[in-house]
Amino acid sequence: MHPQSPLARQIQDERVEGVGKSVEQVAAEARETMEKNRICLVRGFPPDPDRYLEFLGRFGEPLMNYSSLSALEKTDPHPQINRVKYKRKVTGAQSVHYVAGGLRPHSARSWRSPRPSHFAMLMVEPGWREAPAGERGESVVLCWNELFTRLAERDGEVFERHFARLSGTPLTFEANNVREELSDLPLLYPLPDARGPYDVGVRLKQDLPAKVEAMGGRVPESEEYRESLAYLMEASADEAFFACFPLERGDLLLLDNHRFAHGRLRIVGEYEADGEVRSNNRELWSVTVH
Rank of each mutant, 00 (worst) to 15 (best):
Q4W: 14
V16W: 00
V16P: 00
G18Q: 01
V26E: 03
R31P: 06
T33D: 13
N37R: 12
R38N: 12
C40F: 04
P46E: 00
P49K: 06
R51K: 09
Y52R: 12
L53K: 01
L56M: 03
S67F: 10
K74N: 15
T75K: 13
R83E: 12
K87H: 14
R88Y: 13
R88S: 07
V90K: 12
A100Y: 14
G101N: 14
R112Y: 09
P116I: 04
F119N: 12
L122D: 04
A131T: 02
E135P: 08
S139H: 07
L142I: 10
L147W: 01
T149D: 15
L151C: 06
T169V: 02
L171W: 01
R179F: 11
L182Q: 05
S183C: 01
L187K: 03
D193Y: 11
A194I: 14
G196N: 12
P197C: 09
D199S: 09
Q206T: 15
G217P: 05
R226L: 05
E227L: 05
S228Y: 00
L229M: 02
A230N: 09
M233L: 11
F241I: 12
L247E: 02
R249E: 13
L254P: 05
E272A: 06
D274K: 05
S279I: 11
N281S: 12
R282Y: 02
T288S: 11
V289S: 03
H290R: 15
H290F: 13
